[in-house]
Amino acid sequence: MTRFDRLAPAGRVFAIVAFIEAATWAGLLIGMLLKYGTGTTDLGVWLFGRLHGAAFLLYVVVAVGAGVRLRWPLWALLVALVAAVPPLATLPVEVWFRRRGLLSAR
């Protein structure tokens, strides 16, 4: 067991919020499929649009906080922030950061 095996508290919060951000993205995509693809309902867009907006803002705040707290290099902070834009990109970024030890206590 190395010193990087345990996630720091800020790393744990980042991982949880990255998952929530991706889950709300998935809900929004399904909602858009239902609204624009099948024309059945716009409830999914209405609900997940709001949830994703809140999750996106929370993710940006948590990413900046984790980057400062865990002393990420600038490139890592920029990657984390850019990952919030494409759908579901926060999940592979979180896994990559975990493997590189960026979410662990130094």
Score class of each variant (00 low, 15 high):
Leu43Cys: 01
Met32Asn: 10
Phe19Thr: 11
Ala76Tyr: 03
Leu28Ile: 12
Phe48Ala: 00
Arg6Met: 06
Phe14Thr: 00
Thr90His: 07
Ala105Phe: 11
Pro9Ala: 13
Ser104Ala: 15
Ala76Ile: 05
Ala63Arg: 01
Ala22Gln: 05
Ile16Asn: 10
Trp25Cys: 07
Leu103Gln: 02
Phe48Val: 02
Glu21Ser: 06
Arg12Ser: 07
Ala54Gly: 12
Ala89Thr: 13
Val95Ile: 12
Leu33Pro: 06
Ala54Tyr: 11
Ala80Pro: 08
Val61Gly: 09
Thr90Lys: 09
Thr40Val: 15
Ala105Gln: 14
Val95Tyr: 14
Phe97His: 04
Val64Met: 10
Gly65Glu: 06
Gly65Lys: 02
Val62Trp: 04
Val60Pro: 00
Trp25Leu: 05
Leu81Ala: 04
Ala80Asp: 04
Val82Ala: 14
Phe14Tyr: 13
Gly53Cys: 08
Ala84Phe: 00
Met32Trp: 08
Val82Arg: 08
Trp75Arg: 13
Arg98Asn: 03
Leu47Pro: 00
Gly39Ile: 08
Leu91Thr: 03
Ala8Leu: 06
Leu43Arg: 05
Phe97Ala: 05
Ala55Tyr: 02
Leu78Thr: 11
Arg69Ile: 01
Arg98Cys: 00
Leu58Thr: 15
Ala84His: 05
Trp96Ile: 03
Trp72His: 06
His52Leu: 05
Tyr36Gln: 08
Val68Gly: 04
Val93Leu: 12
Ala80Ile: 09
Gly37His: 09
Pro92Cys: 13
Gly31Arg: 03
Arg12Gln: 10
Pro87Tyr: 12
Leu51Tyr: 11
Arg99Cys: 05
Ser104Leu: 13
Val13Leu: 15
Leu70Met: 09
Leu28Ala: 03
Arg71Asp: 07
Gly49Tyr: 00
Ile20Met: 10
Val13Asp: 02
Gly37Pro: 06
Val62Ser: 09
Ala83Tyr: 02
Leu58His: 06
Ala22Trp: 08
Ala23Arg: 06
Leu74Val: 14
Leu7His: 15
Phe56Gln: 03
Lys35Val: 04
Glu94Gln: 14
Glu21Lys: 04
Phe19Gly: 12
Gly67Arg: 00
Tyr59Ile: 03
Asp5Lys: 07
Leu34Glu: 11
Leu88Pro: 09
Ile30Tyr: 12
Ser104Cys: 14
Thr24Val: 06
Ala89Trp: 13
Ala8Glu: 05
Phe97Thr: 02
Phe48Tyr: 10
Lys35Ser: 01
Val82Ile: 14
Leu7Phe: 13
Leu88Cys: 13
Gly101Asp: 03
Ala83Arg: 07
Arg3Ala: 12
Ala105Ser: 15
Ala8Ile: 01
Leu47Phe: 14
Val61Pro: 04
Leu29Val: 14
Arg3Cys: 04
Thr2Asp: 11
Leu29Ser: 11
Thr38His: 11
Val62Leu: 12
Leu7Ser: 10
Val68Ala: 09
Val61Phe: 14
Leu51Asp: 05
Gly31Trp: 03
Arg71Gly: 01
Gly67Lys: 00
Gly65Ser: 10
Phe56Met: 06
Leu88Val: 14
Leu57Gly: 15
Ile16Thr: 14
